[in-house]
Structure formats: C-alpha cells, structure tokens
C-alpha cells in the first residue's frame, strides 16, 4: 500500500511540473494550449537522445527545456503574429512536433536503461536500509529530486509573477484591452507565457522519461487532459486564494490525480480505460459550477435549510 501511494506521489511530483505549465496558459493566459501534448514527448525525446549521445543528464534536461520553449514560441508566433486562433495554433504545433519527435527519437521508443540520469546522483538514498527494507528504494531518488525541483519552480514562478513583466502577463490574460491601454505589448506577453509554460512541460517530459527509463513518441497523448484534471482537482480541493497557495494546490492536485488513478487501477479498472476515466473526470470537474446550480435546489430541499446546503456544496 505504501509502495503504491509513494509511487503515486512520485509520479505526481513529476507531473506537477507539467501541471504548473498547463496552469500558466489555461488559467493565467486563459487559453487551452494543446502544444503541450507535443512538448512533453519532445522533452522526453530530446533528453533521451542527448543522454544516449553521452551528454550530461542535467545538460540534456536543460536542452529539453530549451526545445520546449522553442515549441512554445512557435505556437506564440502562429497565434500572435499570424493571428491563427489559439487552439488551432496549439494543434498545428502539436502535430508538427509529432514528426519532429520521431526524427529526434529515430524510432517510436528509445530506452534509457542502465544509463546515467538526473536521478543517479540521489542513487545513494535507495541503499539506505530504512527505504530499501520498505521496498521503496527505487522511488526515493525520484521523490528527492522532485522535492527539490518542484518547490524551486514554485518559488521562481511566485517571484516572477510579482515582477513588472509577470504582472503584465497576468494582466494580459485578465484583460487584454486594458493591458494594451496601459502600454503592455500583449502579443509578446502571450508568447512569453507560452514559452515559459512549454519549457516547464518539456522539463516534466524529460524528468518522466528518465524516471521510466524510456522515451515514447506516444507519451504526450492525453497529457493536456491530465494537466487540466490536476489543475481543477487542485483548485477544487485545495483552494485558490492567494497565488502561492494556488501554485501549491497545483502540485497537490497533480499528486491527488495520481493517487486516484493508482487507486482505481488497484480496484481492478483495466489500464486501457484510463484515458476514458480521465476525460470523464475532467468533464465532470469542468461542469461542476453548472452542476452545482442544478443540484442546489435538491440539496436545499433535502437539508431543509439553505445554510447547510451552501456549506456543503461550496466545497
């Protein structure tokens, strides 16, 4: 049980990086950026190819981030300069990335077995008897890196979105008309947001590939939905008051999502149904505000008092 739970936490930490990237575009810029489906696989592909090529895994991960940023920039240019709708710009880049990722990988799956990864440094932790005896030795290095990496990202983003440029990006997502009236180049801010977002997503892809010891051309499929699911779970369960608590809630949301998945798999749901399950979860979560208003009279009626009902359904 502990093993399953910790494995979920570990995956959650790695996917949290991607969730934060999705949050930046989905909530701060207010657009659904489908580029991430290609970027996550691209991050994995670049990191895997570079590590196999003998490059230091940290440098390889950095290359992956740069690759993701470039992908974000392409989407940004398509959207802001060529005025292609945001959703379509993302889809175009995503499709293009599929071919590019195949070129980087050379084949559908590239194995990283027995190669040095970013987790190798923390390999010593898995030898500690306490962890080894509990059967979680192989998870500890990844969790250790995740616990270093994710808070660092949160702190950097928290700082960044309080700076003048960060505020300008937030204003652009909030009210582009007002932003332009205040002298903000909204096109550039959207591009910058997409670049940062996709850099994070590629980082996540690189970390995941090194954790699972292979890069897979298919690994991006449905990742936007996983990201959205994590964002929404985080918001619903862990609040969205201050910006900092929002960022933390994203991480908790990503972990919760993984725990839920691990739980339903444990209950015997076929792994092939996972994407269907995720899609339904997201659809339900997105329709929650609407569903709440439908259900409120029922709840009120059952409880016999609006006070209780409100507390219950405001989650």
């Amino acid at each position: 049980m502990l093993q399953i739970l910790l494995a979920a936490v570990m995956l959650g930490l790695l996917w949290a990086v991607m969730t934060i990237g999705v949050y930046l575009t989905f909530r701060i810029l207010g657009m659904a950026d489908l580029t991430v489906e290609g970027t996550i696989a691209m991050g994995a592909a670049i990191a895997a190819r570079a590590i196999i090529g003998g490059i230091n895994p940290y440098a390889a991960t950095l290359l992956a981030i740069l690759g993701g940023m470039a992908a974000g920039l392409v989407t940004g240019l398509l959207h802001t300069k060529l005025k292609i709708p945001a959703l379509l710009s993302g889809i175009l880049t995503m499709i293009a990335l599929y071919s590019i990722n195949l070129r980087i990988l050379g084949k559908a799956i590239l194995s990283l077995l027995r190669l040095e990864t970013v987790y190798t440094v923390f390999g010593g932790l898995s030898q500690i008897p306490f962890f080894a005896d509990a059967g979680i030795g192989h998870l500890v290095p990844v969790i250790a890196l995740g616990l270093l990496c994710v808070p660092a990202i949160i702190c950097i983003l928290y700082w960044f979105f309080r700076t003048e440029i960060g505020c300008a990006i937030r204003a652009t997502g909030d009210n582009p008309q007002m932003s332009r009236a205040q002298g903000i180049n909204t096109g550039n801010m959207i591009m910058l947001g997409l670049v940062i977002s996709n850099g994070l997503v590629a980082l996540s892809g690189a970390l995941i590939a090194q954790q699972q010891s292979f890069a897979d051309i298919q690994m991006g499929i449905g990742s936007i939905v996983i990201g959205l699911a994590s964002v929404i779970i985080g918001e619903v369960l862990f609040g969205k008051n201050s910006f900092f608590s929002r960022l933390v809630s994203l991480v908790l949301g990503a972990i919760t999502y993984r725990v839920i998945i691990a739980f339903v798999l444990e209950l015997g749901m076929p792994a092939n149904d996972l994407k269907l399950f995720t899609a339904i979860t997201v659809a339900l979560a997105l329709s929650l505000p609407e569903l709440k208003s439908y259900l409120r009279p029922v709840v009120t009626g059952l409880k016999g008092g609006a006070k209780n009902a409100r507390g219950k359904w405001s989650l």
Partner: peptide, 26 residues
C-alpha cells in the same frame, strides 16, 4: 481594470504605462 488582480496591482500597471517593464518587483 483587470478584475482578478488587486487594486494596487492595477494601479502599479498604470504607473508603469509607457515604461519598459523589467524584472523589478511589480
């Protein structure tokens, strides 16, 4: 105004109108 930003953040955005925005605190 930007509805999801604080009052002071909105003012700060206007205060920097026409200036180059940097990585200084907002």
């Amino acid at each position: 105004t930007a509805a999801n930003m604080w009052l002071e953040e909105n003012m700060a955005l206007a205060f920097r109108r026409g200036q180059r925005r940097t990585l200084k605190w907002g």
